[in-house]
């Protein structure tokens, strides 16, 4: 970068500072209420209190909701990633009849509104006895994220030179063993990115869980939060603490993957 192209510092720090305030003040506001004693109106949460976390975790059942959300998210991530690996590999490494049509169809599924699926999926899950089980959410979530995951995975696999695999075949490996030995180790950033997307969207899913789970011991965190929001007299400290419980896992995952996000996308994974 040449000197002449340097942007004046204030033109960076001023808009960035304003935008950082807009991003961070809302986060601060929820932390403030989660850690501040009931009845206090101070703008700093001091002295710190953990009573709201106790209320929400044990009293409001967030301990159970948290466990349900974790189970659903983990199962969804495994299901999505494994199926996307198989499908992405097929699209990346084979040319076969109907490949173009499959790609177009999968892109089209991105236009299907989630609300559209509520009614027919409710009927299917009722007929298959999956209603009010965590599996209904796992299946619905996974199906919704499969098309994009497969397309992204195919992009990541295409970026790995096929010659590596061919060398392993010469050495006597079959398709699967060759894939496991040569491609999979190099595919780690792609697998991390795709499973993280699946984790975040599964963790955040609200509408399916609201519709398909109807007993409180099956609720997920977003559903639990939404019921707290709808209560007549809201306990704001507990609500904020519930929000913090909801945000911590996604923030941790996000902090880990955010550098892959831009790199992966600029490597051309979603282009073309």
């Amino acid at each position: 970068m040449t000197r002449a192209r340097q942007v004046p510092r204030w033109a960076i720090y001023l808009p960035l500072g304003v935008y950082l305030l807009f991003t961070l003040v809302p986060f601060y506001w929820i932390l403030l209420f989660a850690f501040r004693k009931t009845g206090s109106t101070a703008l700093v949460p001091w002295p710190l209190t953990f009573e709201h976390f106790d209320t929400v975790w044990n009293g409001a059942g967030f301990g159970v909701f948290f466990k349900n959300s974790v189970v659903i998210a983990v199962l969804t991530v495994i299901l999505t990633t494994v199926i996307a690996l198989a499908g992405g590999y097929a699209l990346a490494r084979f040319s076969f009849k109907g490949k173009g049509a499959i790609m177009v169809l999968m892109l089209c599924t991105q236009f299907v509104p989630g609300a559209m699926m509520l009614i027919p999926l409710f009927d299917i899950f009722r007929a298959t006895q999956l209603i009010n089980t965590l599996w209904s959410i796992v299946v619905a979530d996974a199906v919704f994220h499969l098309p994009l995951s497969i397309i992204l995975m195919a992009g990541f696999i295409k970026n790995i030179p096929v010659e590596l695999e061919e060398a392993s075949w010469v050495d006597g490996c079959g398709r699967f063993r060759g894939f496991r030995m040569t491609v999979l180790p190099l595919l780690r950033p792609g697998v991390v990115a795709i499973s993280s997307f699946a984790f975040i969207s599964s963790w955040n899913n609200f509408l399916f869980a609201l519709m398909f789970l109807n007993s409180q011991d099956q609720f997920t965190i977003p559903v639990g939060l939404s019921y707290m929001l709808g209560e007549y007299s809201v306990d704001f400290g507990a609500l904020a603490a519930g929000g913090v419980v909801a945000v911590v896992p996604v923030v941790l995952v996000f902090a880990y993957v955010q550098r892959f996000l831009v790199q992966g996308l600029s490597a051309g994974a979603v282009k073309g």
């Binding site: 991003t23 961070l24 975040i200 929001l229 909801a246 995952v253 996000f254």
Partner: peptide, 19 residues
């Protein structure tokens, strides 16, 4: 930091902005 709200759910966004 500025990218982080991307990972936040709709329900949680509501919780924050309701406060």
């Amino acid at each position: 930091l500025v990218f982080s709200p991307w990972a936040v759910s709709g329900v949680l966004t509501t919780t924050i902005w309701l406060l």
